[in-house]
């Protein structure tokens, strides 16, 4: 088991940052989703032993980070969200230094630093001063330093922050390659759903310090009903009321569009019938695929609803 959390609670003074989070991650790539302030970074910090749990337990690679922080950090790599470059160093020195801090000899660290800088695509720029690096290059070098000690688990905190679309794609490709081609387990924390969808097999959604859902990406995207984009002309309100009465899921789309979810075994004929009965014209009907964004929005909405009730 790569990660096993049981009722994990973490507090900053009086403020609860994580509340009774239970999660299991057996390997591969796990996406940690959540809006800003959801507790994603706090969870990563707890996994490295930076923060002690106020309740519950966390096990990383079968170790307790609160009790064995050094053993955990020897097998886990962290790519922090913030810039963390030591001034006055060029890339090769910085990455080699990260290796020496993990216990490598200077020669071994330098050799691996060269390899890793090529791996992350900075081979030609490895002798340049870090202060001259662009944001994208800085992100790559943070990844390289996190990989120096060949971690079994890689914690990535918002790895695509500040990257242009091309840089973002390349970074995600690297992360995907690590997780699926190189056997490095990845925990990717992000608020960008497409990033997580592209790299991860499993997603956990945090909201206000609570885990609201954890499932396979494929399961989350699977339709619990079939959704359609519907455009009407006429008395839309009447149509909406009748649709709700008939047990159809309904929400607003862009402009005047409606997104209608049909429960099994209803068919699209039901929509035509409702339109006829409501006296509206059905001008457009298109099947929708549920995205991770929908799943995320639903999970948050459910969590909000549960909190209110």
């Amino acid at each position: 088991m790569v990660l096993e959390l049981e009722g994990l609670t973490v507090r900053y003074g009086a403020k609860t940052a994580l509340s009774e989070v239970s999660l299991r991650f057996e390997g591969g790539a796990l996406g940690l989703l959540g809006p800003n302030g959801a507790g994603k970074t706090t969870l990563l910090r707890t996994l490295l032993g930076f923060l002690a749990p106020a309740g519950g337990s966390a096990r990383v690679l079968e170790m307790d980070p609160a009790r064995q922080p050094l053993a955990v950090r020897a097998r886990v790599g962290l790519m922090p969200e913030v810039d963390c470059h030591i001034p006055g160093m060029n890339a090769i020195r910085f990455v080699a230094y990260a290796g020496e801090l993990c216990g490598m000899s200077a020669v071994e660290a330098m050799q691996r630093a060269h390899e890793l800088l090529y791996y992350v695509g900075l081979g030609e720029a490895r002798y340049r001063d870090l202060q001259e690096y662009s944001t994208g290059m800085k992100q790559r070098i943070k990844l390289a330093q996190a990989l120096m000690h060949d971690p079994e688990l890689l914690l990535l905190d918002e790895p695509t922050n500040g990257l242009d679309p091309r840089g973002r794609g390349e970074m995600l490709e690297l992360v995907r390659d690590l997780a699926h081609g190189k056997g490095v387990h990845v925990l990717l924390s992000s608020h960008l759903l497409p990033d997580v969808e592209r790299v991860c097999d499993v997603v956990a959604v945090l909201h206000r310090g609570r885990l609201v859902v954890q499932d396979q990406v494929a399961n989350l995207k699977a339709l619990s009903g079939r959704s359609y984009l519907v455009r009407l002309r006429g008395e839309v309100q009447l149509f909406a009321e009748r649709a709700e009465t008939a047990g159809l899921g309904l929400r607003r789309g862009r402009d005047e569009d409606l997104i209608v979810t049909l429960p099994e075994p209803a068919s699209t004929l039901e929509l035509f019938r409702l339109a006829r009965d409501s006296g509206v014209q059905l001008r457009h009907l298109a099947a929708l695929e549920r995205t991770l964004e929908d799943a995320f929005a639903d999970a948050l909405a459910e969590a909000e609803g549960a909190a209110r009730s």
């Binding site: 962290l78 922090p80 810039d83 963390c84 030591i86 990260a98």
Partner: peptide, 12 residues
């Protein structure tokens, strides 16, 4: 520059 996180994320 936030380098403390780099140091303390290593086995130190």
């Amino acid at each position: 520059v936030g380098a403390l996180q780099v140091y303390l994320a290593k086995p130190l």
